[in-house]
Amino acid sequence: ATNIVGKVKWYNSTKNFGFIEQDNGGKDVFVHKSAVDAAGLHSLEEGQDVIFDLEEKQGKAYAVNLRIK
């Protein structure tokens, strides 16, 4: 899925991951530091509006192509 809109539920910059809540009511999506770095960001803030693509690997969904809304 592409261009999914959501809000950062939480992001832990020490542990380098967090979760994004989808605006469409879907399951929360894992986001890793690598996606944050690829977006040219240092971190994510709770409540921040983002747009992302959804990829699945080994049955787990995660956010890629992250951008600030």
Rank of each mutant, 00 (worst) to 15 (best):
A1D: 11
A1K: 09
A1Y: 13
A1P: 14
A1C: 04
A1N: 11
A1V: 13
T2G: 07
T2Y: 15
T2A: 11
T2I: 14
T2R: 06
T2S: 12
N3R: 05
N3W: 04
N3T: 05
N3F: 05
N3I: 03
N3M: 06
I4Q: 12
I4P: 02
I4N: 08
V5P: 11
V5S: 07
V5W: 04
G6C: 01
G6Y: 01
K7V: 06
K7Q: 06
K7R: 12
K7M: 06
K7S: 06
K7H: 14
K7L: 05
V8K: 00
V8T: 03
V8R: 00
V8G: 01
V8Y: 01
K9M: 04
K9E: 01
K9Y: 02
K9A: 06
K9D: 01
K9S: 05
K9W: 02
W10G: 02
W10V: 05
W10K: 05
W10C: 04
Y11T: 02
Y11S: 01
Y11F: 13
Y11Q: 01
Y11A: 01
Y11N: 01
N12A: 09
N12P: 02
N12K: 14
N12L: 09
N12F: 08
N12W: 09
S13V: 12
T14H: 13
T14N: 10
T14L: 13
T14S: 10
K15Y: 12
K15L: 14
K15S: 08
K15W: 14
K15E: 05
N16I: 02
N16C: 04
N16S: 11
N16T: 07
N16Y: 12
F17S: 03
F17G: 03
F17M: 06
F17V: 03
F17W: 08
G18M: 01
G18L: 02
G18H: 00
G18A: 02
G18C: 02
G18E: 00
F19R: 02
F19K: 03
F19P: 00
I20C: 02
I20D: 00
I20T: 01
I20E: 00
I20V: 07
E21S: 15
E21V: 15
Q22T: 14
Q22I: 14
Q22N: 07
Q22F: 15
D23L: 15
D23K: 15
D23R: 15
D23A: 15
D23Q: 15
D23Y: 15
D23T: 15
N24Q: 12
N24G: 13
N24P: 08
N24S: 08
N24H: 15
N24D: 07
G25M: 08
G25V: 08
G25C: 05
G25E: 08
G25Q: 10
G26W: 11
G26I: 08
G26P: 11
G26D: 09
G26R: 13
G26H: 13
K27D: 08
K27V: 12
K27I: 10
K27W: 09
K27E: 06
K27S: 09
D28A: 06
D28Q: 07
D28K: 04
D28C: 04
D28H: 07
D28G: 04
V29Y: 07
V29A: 07
V29K: 02
F30W: 05
F30M: 04
F30A: 02
F30C: 03
F30R: 02
V31D: 00
V31I: 10
H32I: 02
H32C: 03
H32K: 03
K33Q: 10
K33H: 07
K33A: 11
K33M: 05
K33C: 04
K33T: 05
S34I: 09
S34R: 09
S34K: 15
S34W: 13
S34M: 11
S34V: 09
A35L: 03
A35Q: 09
A35R: 05
A35Y: 06
V36E: 01
V36N: 02
V36H: 02
V36L: 13
V36C: 04
V36T: 03
D37A: 15
D37P: 02
D37C: 06
D37Q: 14
D37F: 15
A38E: 14
A38Y: 12
A39T: 08
A39H: 03
A39F: 03
A39C: 03
G40H: 12
G40Y: 06
G40L: 06
G40R: 08
G40T: 04
G40M: 07
L41M: 08
L41Y: 14
L41F: 15
L41K: 10
H42N: 12
H42Q: 09
H42C: 05
H42G: 08
H42E: 13
S43C: 05
S43E: 09
S43G: 12
S43F: 15
S43L: 13
L44S: 01
L44Y: 02
L44V: 06
L44N: 01
L44H: 01
L44A: 02
L44C: 02
E45T: 13
E45N: 11
E45W: 15
E45A: 13
E46N: 14
E46G: 11
E46Q: 14
E46W: 12
G47Y: 06
G47C: 04
G47E: 06
G47Q: 08
G47K: 14
G47A: 07
G47V: 03
Q48P: 02
Q48N: 07
Q48D: 08
Q48K: 09
D49I: 15
D49N: 15
D49K: 15
D49L: 15
D49R: 15
V50C: 04
V50P: 00
V50H: 01
V50D: 00
I51T: 14
I51Y: 15
I51M: 08
I51G: 04
F52P: 00
F52R: 00
F52C: 03
F52Y: 08
F52I: 04
F52L: 03
F52T: 02
D53E: 05
D53V: 04
L54S: 06
L54H: 07
L54W: 06
L54Y: 07
E55Y: 12
E55V: 12
E55S: 12
E55G: 12
E55A: 13
E55H: 14
E56F: 11
E56N: 12
E56I: 10
K57R: 11
K57W: 13
Q58S: 08
Q58P: 10
Q58H: 15
Q58I: 10
Q58N: 14
Q58G: 14
Q58T: 09
G59C: 04
G59I: 06
G59T: 08
G59R: 10
K60G: 08
K60F: 09
K60W: 09
K60M: 13
K60D: 07
A61I: 12
A61S: 12
Y62A: 09
Y62T: 08
Y62G: 07
Y62L: 07
A63R: 00
A63D: 00
A63E: 00
A63C: 04
A63M: 02
V64P: 00
V64N: 08
V64C: 04
V64D: 05
N65M: 07
N65A: 08
N65V: 03
N65R: 10
N65I: 02
N65D: 05
N65K: 08
L66D: 00
R67T: 10
R67C: 04
I68N: 11
I68W: 14
I68S: 12
I68C: 05
I68A: 08
I68R: 14
K69R: 07
K69N: 08
K69T: 05
K69G: 06
